[in-house]
Design a protein around this nucleic acid. Structure first.
Lengths: 211, 211
DNA sequence: ATACGGTTAAACTTAATGGTTAATCCTTAT
DNA sequence: ATAAGGATTAACCATTAAGTTTAACCGTAT
């Protein structure tokens, strides 16, 4: 493979990374192409040389970030372990990921809510159907033992995900009510505590569910 | 009190209402003063006559919306009923409010995350300290019976709130994974089901908590 | 050598968009 | 009736941001 002036497409990658940061931080409307160019260490002309419009750049970034987050979740839930184990593992790993990407949830949720058509291009490529069905079938006995019917799965899954995602999306609301957690270190500790709290909470609720 | 041309401040109110809608729908960055003026049925000059800058208008709107939401939550939790009853009542009433203000959660959370200083003016006027303390003290015996220590209260309260708020904030993410719920009627039904699901879930988890 | 892709700087175009101005309207007080 | 003053308007202004253009530079492949 012949190398040109710039070996790989490092410029494109730098743009992509810069754009991810700026979009994630400010949202689509608040982001400025100039700021992205600055952060990538290039000028606006080159930025448009790689991504002709803001929309296109945003679309690319959004899709990657959404997929990244989604695939992490799926991969954990696809593993071949008991449902209870999955829960513990999920909260552990997912919360660690979110600690490293604290602004990601609110960014994804907000942009999605502002233009739902963003999903169009991604929907087909994500194995959400697969996840939904296989999750219930793989743990049919275990879930049946908990009195969880197939119809209950959406409520349950939403509940599980909200345990880890919501605190990050609502971070500043939490800070408002619990000023101690304004300190990032303490917030992270709080979220690490939450791993066990959440797993225990869900498992207890399931085990003792009225059938 | 002498009345001038316009008896009450109906114009101001119309502006305020229009601004609430537009900001809630598009966010600060996505909102246009022109659109607000149009929706209020006036022109931009008059808009600036009442609210000199976009920031000022936004600040006023945001504060009112945040307080509105917060006070509803507080009022339910302050009532003089058992903790279990509070939970059921909270999920019932809170979810009904959110059904009528579906975009409010993501709006508040997103704007707050973009400029946390928004809280400054509001913090003092909200009885969150009061809520935190009185909640635990009022139900000391009941919560003790569940093995909830004072330190556990933030985790518990966050959990409770996330049951009702998160689904609205994540509405389009949910729609992506559960296409049936794209239909608003069905989504509302789903959320009404969730009232009982959430209350049962939390109460079961509490009752059987390992101490 | 030369052709070409990546890159820069800088000036430019164009379409909003927030905010202003000066005049007009309307109601009430005198 | 008329003056005063708040409410309202149409037109305007200044700035910003996306995207373009142009001319030049530089390293590598042919």
């Amino acid at each position: 493979m012949v190398k040109y002036q710039v070996p790989d497409n490092q410029t494109r990658d730098r743009i992509f990374k810069a754009a991810s940061e700026v979009f994630e931080e400010k949202g689509y409307d608040g982001a400025r192409m100039q700021e992205i160019a600055d952060l990538a260490g290039i000028n606006k002309a080159l930025l448009h040389y790689y991504f002709s419009t803001k929309d296109q750049l945003f679309g690319a970034v959004f899709q990657v970030l959404l997929r990244k987050m989604f695939e992490k979740i799926v991969s954990i839930f696809m593993e071949d372990i008991s449902f209870k184990e999955k829960l513990r593992k999920f909260f552990d790993q997912h919360i660690e990921i979110l600690i490293k990407n604290q602004k990601l949830p609110i960014f994804l949720l907000n942009e999605l809510s502002h233009n739902p058509e963003l999903v169009q291009g991604i929907r087909e490529t994500l194995p959400y159907e697969q996840l939904r069905n296989s999750l219930f079938q793989k743990h049919a006995k275990e879930l049946k033992g908990y009195g969880i019917k197939k119809d209950d799965m959406p409520q349950l899954m939403l509940t599980v995900v909200s345990f880890s995602v919501f605190p990050f999306a609502a971070r500043d609301m939490i800070t408002m009510m619990i000023p101690e957690l304004a300190d990032n270190k303490k917030f992270i500790a709080f979220m690490r505590d939450r791993k066990e709290f959440a797993a225990d909470f869900v498992i207890t609720a399931l085990k003792n569910r009225k059938k």
